[in-house]
Amino acid sequence: MAAAPKHALSDSSRRDAQAFGEALFARTLDEAPPAERMRWFVDDLDDFVAHLNLRARWLFLFCLFAVTWVAPLLAGHLGRLRGLSVAGRIAALEALEQSPASLALFGARAVVSLVYYEHPDAAAEIGWDRRCLADVRPERVAASRLVPLGRSGSSAEGART
């Protein structure tokens, strides 16, 4: 696979995404998920965004912008989401969810959830065994699986009726 450019997200956007993820995935009101997991999450999210075309990238950044700036406003705070405590961020996100801008939260949450729950520990927390990935057997994909082609059910390849 071709290497993606490093850091499609700016340092500031990486911190915004981390603050969002820490609140969304927190299991208690005062504690974010483990730091190692959040580092993996932000790096992988960065790689995901690096593979998006410009429009999809801007769409994600727009959604992240709404989460970062609009959510705190709706909870009565001026400033970025990351300026709030984990509990404050959670309240802000839930306020955004009930607002007309909820589609932006949905867009951002879809992308970050896809990435975050692929961390083995995060997957385990929701009971996702990811069995399908443990069972990859590439050697089974073989040319012998192909079915001959012929017109109108003829078995001879390329035969015409």
Binding site: L24, A26, A110, Y117, W128
Partner: peptide
């Protein structure tokens, strides 16, 4: 859909979402 996609469509944030 993958469990991660189901999680994305669950409401709330933080402990209630968890």
């Amino acid at each position: 859909v993958p469990a991660s996609v189901i999680a994305a469509t669950m409401p709330y944030a933080g402990p209630r979402h968890a």
